[in-house]
Design a protein around this nucleic acid. Structure first.
Lengths: 251, 251
DNA sequence: ACACAACAATTGTTCAACACTTGACAACTT
DNA sequence: AAGTTGTCAAGTGTTGAACAATTGTTGTGT
């Protein structure tokens, strides 16, 4: 999906990928402890390999490592959310201003993201809707044409997404954001970047305040902790990234 | 220096820190291969621990890992340099605009960076000069008050610094940049942010073109490769980060 | 209640082996 | 001679088992 090249990856990378997916999809909720041995066994990898995977995800900010006290799925504080939205404002808005010389393929993908979003909302699939929503914003960053920025932004969006799984969007966000995205897209293709940036800024402010409000209410009682979320699945991982060998977690 | 708390770190983290320092100080030049076993032995840690350290640095972009073909100190391409300066423009300029509500301590540190820079240039200590130069720019980012941005920027500056060790500044940069930094500082404290941003943009452009020119000339013949840069030092690392236990590489 | 010592649980680290890739070189075919 | 195939050594990827170090707890004594 990213590079058309078939490149091998290590088992540790695959394990990290699977764990990442589980976290981002909400199967592993913030605060969940992840003891090494059961975790390694549940994925059919050795403890050392799992440690490498955990190291990767803790650098990404998805896991929090307390020395000699184990690893947990990270929990975003209110400040974290503010930081992330601060970043989004800086990076997305400047990206819009760089859209003048954006390659057409990006516009196509943006269109697909808008459509996908709308479709997901129509079918009440909130998880998928959040996915397309964030995909849209991630695509904006592509206008910068900066690989480092893209990977950094993806990391940040990942953290945000991890925090989002806590909120039940079904009765919160009635999908009213579809028109906003569509409007942003239209202004973008029309080259009205100034106006687009303005609406985007507003959109981000709204999104932050809504998210922040929810967090402020939720954060007092840390009742999100599942005792154990790993049934012993002994599927082994292979070194090849040819699709097979990666036991997809869901979907 | 960051948190006043004395926190323990793992040996893998220490090993990564030492390797990072060696790379950033130019002891390990871009392209240098780093075979696992000798590297681990030279630091007195096990191979697995060293693998974790290597993993850390390759995520930071300082090492490049080729699966089954070993690890090398990363080399920046011209595009990499362009990317990095693009980031610097975005992040530093917007940081200057956020300096209005900057905390006074940051200004103090900026002042110290300018003075340190000047002092280093006076004593012809180019390595230290580069350090203070980059320190100044890193401090600008502090105005954003964003931890994620700071660590990201530090990572990026690290990559740049790694590339900079290749150029012999002694006959290139005659330290003529001291006045620029001082001017930037003065405009900053005077609150003339608009003007400061303009000069900063100019400064970054100059810096990039100078660097790019040097790289374009140098990159054709990859003669930067030391066969082996590790004399067997069997100093063991400890788990405590109390200063002792970390065999400082240089300084 | 408080201090303090033994303890179980878990993480941090090491070690030694084996499996798998890769690049190089030799043997072979045409 | 050029190109193909086979073998081999070196290095990385992965594993499993052990040991060391740290933390929280439990229990004991005062």
């Amino acid at each position: 999906m990213e590079h058309s090249q078939i490149h091998r990856v290590t088992v540790a990378d695959q394990a990290a990928g699977i764990l990442r997916q589980r976290i981002l999809e909400g199967e592993l909720r913030p605060g969940t402890p992840l003891p090494e041995i059961p975790l390694a066994e549940s994925m059919g990898v050795s403890r050392n390999t799992m440690r490498e995977a955990v190291r990767i995800l803790s650098i990404e900010g998805l896991l929090k490592r307390n020395i000699h006290r184990g690893v947990r799925v990270a929990q975003l504080s209110l400040r974290d959310v503010q930081e992330i939205y601060h970043l989004r404002r800086i990076l997305e808005i400047s990206a819009v201003h760089a859209a003048k010389r954006g390659r057409p393929e990006v516009f196509q993908e943006l269109r697909a993201a808008v459509d996908g979003y709308e479709e997901a909302v129509r079918s009440r699939d909130w998880a998928k809707a959040v996915g397309w929503d964030l995909q849209f914003h991630t695509l904006l960053i592509r206008f910068h044409g900066n690989r480092r920025l893209e990977s950094f932004y993806q990391k940040v969006i990942g953290e945000l997404r991890m925090g989002m799984v806590l909120v039940d969007r079904s009765h919160d966000n009635p999908g009213g954001l579809v028109p906003v995205h569509r409007k942003l897209y239209q202004l973008l293709v029309a080259g009205k970047l100034k106006q687009c940036a303005a609406i985007l800024a507003q959109h981000l402010d709204d999104s932050e305040s809504r998210f922040g409000r929810i967090m402020a209410g939720e954060s007092s009682h840390p009742g999100w902790q599942s005792k154990r979320a790993n049934s012993a699945r002994s599927r082994k991982l292979s070194t090849r990234a040819d699709g097979r060998g990666i036991p997809a977690v869901a979907e």
